[in-house]
């Protein structure tokens, strides 16, 4: 495991520990339980990737499993923010569609031996869109509540940052590989800046007062 990966795992683990502590002390609302699952799967991916790297030359198939799962969890997170029944139906409908899309991509377009950049691109675009929808929701319907005091605002900012990086770096990683492996590696490491920022923003959100269970 490289240093950048290790730092990322530590940050994820720190967030996870605080969530466990809050869960034990005060209980967690559903969006935070989903966030807990997202962080746990991200750590599992990083560790699994590191372990498999020693035994298998290609561990990219992990991403073919992880990305649809990640998308599903983030979709569930946004559904539980209670934006509006119409938006929830829209997000809900997007989940099976994305699963079918990623499955088709993994079988026919970018097989499990190849980096699934199309799926990452689609996932990033859709989740950025959901994040922006939530910001709009705050601006229109939750104007009476200070955004800085809203934990989901910080978590959503983290999601937006992470998937912005993911969209351009992991989404175009295959093209970068064509330019050169060194270049691709450099950008891959740059992607960790976004992951760290996401962890910090998640941490701010997690440390905010536990919101009421209905929201």
């Amino acid at each position: 495991m490289t240093l950048v990966n290790t730092v990322y795992v530590i940050l994820l683990g720190f967030n996870l520990c605080i969530l466990i502590f809050k869960w034990y002390r005060h209980g967690l609302v559903i969006p935070f339980k989903i966030l807990f699952a997202i962080l746990a799967f991200a750590i599992a991916l990083e560790l699994g990737e590191a372990m498999l790297f020693m035994h298998l030359p290609n561990n990219l198939f992990l991403y073919h499993i992880y990305n649809p799962l990640e998308f599903t969890l983030y979709s569930l997170y946004f559904i539980n923010l209670s934006m509006s029944p119409r938006i929830n139906r829209f997000i809900f409908a997007g989940m099976p569609l994305f699963l079918v899309f990623s499955f088709v991509c993994s079988i026919f377009i970018q097989t499990i031996q190849v980096n699934n950049s199309y799926v990452v691109l689609a996932e990033s675009v859709v989740l950025i869109f959901y994040g922006l929808l939530y910001l709009r929701f705050i601006n229109v319907y939750q104007i009476e509540r200070r955004a800085e005091g809203n934990p989901y605002f910080w978590v959503t900012l983290g999601i937006l940052l992470y998937f912005t990086g993911s969209l351009f770096i992991e989404g175009f990683l295959n093209l970068l590989m064509n330019v050169g492996e060194d270049v691709a590696r450099r950008y891959y490491k740059l992607g960790f800046v976004f992951k760290y920022l996401m962890c910090i923003l998640f941490l701010i959100g997690i440390l905010k007062r536990n919101p009421p269970a209905s929201t």
């Binding site: 912005t164 990086g165 351009f168 770096i169 175009f172 970068l176 330019v179």
Partner: peptide
Amino acid sequence: DIELFILTGI
């Protein structure tokens, strides 16, 4: 070009 695109995009 792809690097420029990625940096500009970000």
